[in-house]
Design a protein around this nucleic acid. Structure first.
Lengths: 147, 147
DNA sequence: AATATTAAGACAAATTTTATCTTAATTTGA
DNA sequence: TCAAATTAAGATAAAATTTGTCTTAATATT
């Protein structure tokens, strides 16, 4: 029940990029250094981000990465799902046949519901929120009252 | 970002037990059969549940497991944490020194907040909710509106 | 006391995560 | 133009976790 190191690195790397002037080409080496993450691991993570289309990569000297999607439009949910794969709290939520009750039991409904809630929460934050100061307007969600 | 098979089995096993009359001694073999889970794996899971104190085990012929805590008082969060360990969305939430910003960055605050929300949601369901019909009164949390 | 049945606990396979190392692509400067 | 430098891409590998099985010990019953 947690995000991977890779997702954490990805978010931190993208936030680092988002703090630079728009259009800046960033090297993995710099991104890694400034986020205290292993450069070769970060390299692989940015490969995945590039494949997804949210960043653009340039090979060779003076190569690097730029945003292909505005940081305002990149949600935390998007990043986590690109790196870790779809958020699925329990397998019965996506694969009903994996459930003895064919996904019709109350436990199934609980997981589906909590997953939706989590998904909404992760979608409510963007990379830009952490690069700029727009984050402060959003807290806290944990005050939500569950009857 | 998901619960383990083990936690899923544990919840299903406990719900199965909770449907029996209070005080019934249940065998792992039966629990496993009725939840479509590997018996030897379920055995290990119930060992862990017994160590935690929420169920009581009896060794030998006519041995088995009974509740040591009322199903009403066993939350889904408790079960998940007993089996999978504490719910920690990102390591910086519990270990600030693992964060380059000593846990004072906005990303840290986001994870802490979402974790609290998730924790509250998981605490709002009990094993009894799925054994009886009290579950229906609780949905849906996913209607919560995140500004 | 022997047997049957149970949980407990040691052990092992499989998968996932977290990386590293090598290769290919591109630019730049000599 | 070609070698060198620098970059991302991709193959490979180590480590950790998850998921399970197999053997042992405990207890009750006959």
């Amino acid at each position: 029940m947690n995000i991977s190191r890779a997702s954490d690195y990805a978010i931190r790397g993208l936030v680092y990029m988002a703090k630079k002037p728009a259009g800046t080409v960033c090297f993995v080496k710099d991104i890694a250094k400034n986020t205290n993450s292993p450069a070769s691991f970060m390299s692989k993570i940015f490969q995945t981000l590039a494949k997804s289309g949210i960043v653009h990569s340039f090979i060779g000297t003076k190569g690097g990465f730029t945003f292909n999607t505005r940081p305002e439009d990149i949600t935390i949910k998007m990043v986590v799902e690109i790196i870790d794969g779809p958020i699925v709290l329990n397998r019965c939520v996506i694969n009903k046949s994996s459930c003895q009750n064919a996904g019709n039991c109350d436990v199934h409904f609980m997981w589906t519901d909590i997953q939706k809630m989590l998904s909404k929460a992760l979608s409510s934050y963007s990379i830009a929120d952490f690069a700029n100061d727009t984050f402060k307007n959003k807290l806290p969600k944990s005050d939500l009252n569950f009857a």
